Amino acid sequence: MYNMELTSFMELIEVMKLIELMELKTTRFKRSPFGHILGLTIVCLLIIFLYKITLLWMYDRYTAADSYYSHGFLVPLISLYFIYQKRQQLQLYTQQFSMLGLLLILFALLLHILGTVLYIFSISGFSIFFLTIGLSLFLFGNQRTKVIWFPLLFLIFMFPLPMTVISVIAFPLKMMAAKAGVWVTSLFGVPIYHEGFNIYIPAGHLLVDNPCSGLRSLISFMALGSIFAYVAPIPTGRKWLLFLLTIPIALFSNFIRVPLLVQASHYLGLEAAAPDTIIHTGTGILVFVIGFVLLLTSAKVLE
Rank of each mutant, 00 (worst) to 15 (best):
K52A: 03
Y62F: 15
L38S: 13
L50M: 11
D60M: 04
K25L: 14
A65E: 12
M58T: 02
A65Y: 15
Y59R: 07
L38C: 12
T26R: 11
Y69S: 06
Y69L: 05
Y62R: 08
I47N: 11
L46E: 13
Y68G: 03
L46P: 05
S70T: 10
L46N: 10
M58K: 02
G35F: 08
L50K: 06
H36E: 13
G39K: 11
Y68A: 11
L40H: 05
Y68C: 05
G39W: 00
F29K: 01
A65V: 13
K25S: 13
L45M: 06
G39F: 01
D60H: 12
F49R: 06
I48P: 01
T63K: 07
L55F: 13
A64R: 10
T63Y: 06
I53S: 09
F49A: 13
R31E: 14
F49L: 11
V43C: 07
R61F: 01
K30L: 11
G35L: 06
T27W: 02
V43Q: 06
T26D: 03
S32Q: 06
L56H: 07
D66W: 10
I47D: 05
K25W: 10
W57P: 00
L56N: 05
L24A: 07
L24S: 11
V43I: 15
Y69E: 02
Y51H: 09
I42V: 14
A65D: 10
I53P: 00
K25Q: 14
C44M: 09
S70E: 15
I48A: 12
L56D: 07
D60P: 00
P33W: 03
A65S: 13
L55Q: 02
P33F: 01
S32L: 04
I48D: 02
T54Y: 01
G35N: 07
L46F: 12
S67Y: 09
L56T: 09
K25Y: 12
P33D: 02
T54L: 01
T54W: 01
T41E: 03
K30V: 14
V43A: 09
M58C: 04
L38W: 05
I37C: 09
L56F: 08
D60C: 01
Y59Q: 07
I42C: 04
T41G: 15
C44F: 12
I37Q: 10
G39Y: 00
P33K: 03
C44H: 03
F34G: 11
Y59H: 09
K52D: 05
K25P: 00
L45H: 01
F34S: 03
Y59L: 14
C44R: 00
Y59D: 09
G39N: 06
T63H: 07
